[in-house]
Design a protein around this nucleic acid. Sequence first.
RNA 1: CGGGGAGUGGCUCAGUGGUAGAGCGCUCGCUUGGGGUGCGAGAGGUCGCGGGUUCAAUUCCCGCCUUCCCGACCA
Length: 581
Amino acid sequence: MKLSQYFVPTLREAPQDADTISANLMIRAGLIRKLASGIYEWLPLGLRTLKKVEQIVREEMDKAGGMEVWLPVIQPKELWLETGRWNVYGKELLRIEDRKETEFCFAPTAEEVITNMVRRDIRSYRQLPVLLYQFGVKFRDEIRPRFGVIRAREFYMKDAYSFHSSEESANEMYRRVYEAYNNIFKRCGFEYSAVEADSGAIGGDFTHEFMVLADTGENAIAYCSCGYAANTEKAEVAVPPAATPTDFKPLTDLHTPGVSSVEDVAAFLKAKPHKFIKTLFYLADGEPVLILMRGDHQLNEIKLAKVLKCSVLEKAPEHVYEAVAGCAVGFAGPVKIREQFTGAAGVKPLKAVLADNYVKTIVNGVSGANKADKHTVNVNPGRDFEPDAYYDLKTADAGDCCPKCGQPMKIKRGIEVGHTFKLGTKYSAPMKCEYLDEGQQSHPMIMGCYGIGVSRVVAAAIEQGHDKNGIIWPAPLAPFDISLVSISLDDTPTVTAETQKVYDLIHSAGLTALWDDRDERPGVKFKDADLIGLPYRIVVSSKTLAEGEVEFKKRTEEGFGKRVKLADLPELLKNIKSGTV
RNA sequence: CGGGGAGUGGCUCAGUGGUAGAGCGCUCGCUUGGGGUGCGAGAGGUCGCGGGUUCAAUUCCCGCCUUCCCGACCA
């Protein structure tokens, strides 16, 4: 493709609203343009990469036994009522009406549609299992779209669904797709991690998120050199070493008028947040629960919900707080907390006082005093209070110890590019998607679902592959293989003719090139080539031709490339094709 | 949903109660020719939309729309 005739509007400066490296570079390199908040146009160059990703995904899904289908983006309300999601999904579900005022939604995902399709035409255990997948535009009306194409409202996704007559079959399929996903992300050249994720309200045996490691990722994952990796929503933290007993100082109440947050009190008392015991109130199925955390730690509500085995966990409203602690919000503490109970407004007494393991390590700490405008210093667990139990309740941080091997874990940020999920009968049961077994018995099918954010994969590739000059594409995703740059001084026809020969050679080697044939100065061409980031660059100029050579270098190499004799070019191209350069 | 920015040419932005500018980009010419060359001449804007104040509004006021950021757990 000749650049002079190709639609690649590169920009020297990125629009103001490009909030990440990938968004910035995708816009500057002419891959995408924004039409509205979270809605993007894909230009020719961007689409080429999107299609490359799509093809890799397609090949691996087919290899795993998948069958590609095409499902509607406009989906009838009735199906969503069947699963209850019409009311549950919330504002993210974009609802629309047709001219007859029949209600539809724009697909955010396709469980309802595919389950409907399967229940209609698959009846026998002998037809199972099936793995169906599609590529399609999805729309989720995000509260706050950002990070360019990473968190867009409209995006391109591969979604796959499998249906089974047994758990074993479903597990087997899950393993197969898991393997396919690994193949896909390896082929994309990603540094990624398949991490354990929380299965959320849906439950199920297992679920994995495929995270591309990148600083701009929205998710934090904790990982350890031993191989353990999990979303921090789920990551366990080993019990920290016990505090060494030192001189316990006497409990003292201090006047802290109007300051209640850990941060403010810490500043007021000139103490460090990690010396604080913060006191949180929750309602577990309506009963008040008190949670103690180290001041600088985050409570992980998912862990808490699991410990409490409750179905509804919510933060306690203010009146519950006051009824239990007997003071205003911001001044509660664990010392003699059960004696503070007033029972006002029909609030039940504390069901439990739970503390994170790290609270046990605090010596001479600070907490609320259960009195207005007072905090207590020199609080010591064991001496001044004893929680009902200690658990691992904190969100994992860097340095926390790995639950498997005890070594300090590290935290990396990751972009979720894929998610595999064992659904069970969550959709098949309410929608009566059933099969008949050998004994004429009906059972809901066991389902799995597996998604890959194709458009997000493109952005993730750039987050992982770039330098100050632009994109560095992994070879399998590059929109073209080679940046062919022709530079002519005063003999343009010769250079053009010779470059045409190189261009033809590239194609006969089974490679593609973006030939910068514009009448631009070399600097401009090199800058654009770096920005666009094709893996290889071949320069043909009067200077190189005079010696029967071209210049070759990889995108990652600095400065001039190495000279290659024209006669050796076919060999070089062969090596590029086979990836041995 | 709450708070705070912002909307002026394709992009980044300046500016003004008397209907507008710069840099980049674009067109043409000359120049230059291996990391965004220099010079000159041009094209291109109902200053987001609607209303109000005013002799006069892109500018001031009100409403709306769009967009970006922060927040919407942390005692």
